[in-house]
Design a protein around this nucleic acid. Structure first.
Lengths: 152, 152
DNA sequence: GAATAAAATATGAAATTTCATATAAATTGA
DNA sequence: TCAATTTATATGAAATTTCATATTTTATTC
């Protein structure tokens, strides 16, 4: 029941990655929506928690989405009072996005909950898996970003 | 450069999973679009390659998307001649989706390419990682689906 | 064997996302 | 320095996606 079909898909690496990401995020994303945020907005808050004043383009890249979509997400977050735009002093093309007090409170709370949730996830794994998973994913990301896998 | 901001996000499990999934899929998904398909359509083809005649609901679950969206994706694939709907003999509510000859050719070709691509990905990892990644993700999925991580 | 509930799919309408491109500012290079 | 590029953001319009719910068929319960 609720079992993926046999053969190809259920052991295909890209499926396993997408499905794991989906399943691992499911519960926390429900919490995010419970707070009236959408997932992309939470991602923006998390990025700005780490480094306030990021550019639209950077936010888009770190949040894994397109620039024009990020522009609109920042629009909404700004209307909602979670962030403010300020144009960069030295380069007028750049728009830097800053947390408001409200935004900072919310991001602090959510980052806290995210860490708790992550700990619960990790504790559901075997100790060996729990210890290895993040380093392996980091190495995978590194392999993907550096060599980008030859296409020839 | 193109480095995620320090601190929280760049080592957050849900970020690493989403980013890995994204990065690992990027190249192959570009190939899918090159063939005039969208990613959800490729997922349907892959599911039906494994098991023809799946229901809309099953396709939606395996393809990680909502039922009403899957209904519309099947609409488009049907218009395009990749699949056909047939209502289930024994249960009139169920709509079963079958590959057409064109759909089967395309799915066969793409599954072949997907396996090639997967091999290239795996060969970019260390042998230890390459050997472990799928089993670990399967265990992660299993842990997530079975216990679903207590929420109490 | 009706009545009620559940399951599977479809659909209208609103919202979001994408795509191409516009706008504006900075950089390059002749 | 001026024209041509490049970079950063925004935006209109089309397409997709979501949400709530309708429709249809099967299962359950009394």
């Amino acid at each position: 029941m609720a079992q993926a079909p046999e053969k190809f898909v259920s052991s295909y690496l890209l499926y396993l990655l997408a499905a794991s990401s989906e399943a691992a995020s499911h519960q926390f994303h429900a919490r995010v929506r419970q707070l009236g945020l959408r997932v992309p907005e939470w991602r923006v808050l998390a990025c700005l928690f780490d480094q306030d004043g990021l550019m639209i383009t950077q936010l888009a890249r770190f949040s894994l989405m397109e620039q024009s979509r990020m522009t609109r997400i920042v629009d909404q977050m700004e209307k909602r009072g979670l962030v403010v735009r300020r144009s960069d002093a030295g380069d007028g093309r750049r728009v830097r996005v800053y947390l408001t007090d409200d935004g900072r409170m919310l991001s602090t709370q959510l980052v806290f909950e995210a860490k708790e949730h992550e700990n619960r996830l990790l504790s559901a794994l075997t100790p060996a898996d729990a210890e290895r998973i993040k380093p392996s994913l980091l190495r995978l990301l590194d392999a993907l970003n550096s060599s980008l896998i030859s296409n020839d």
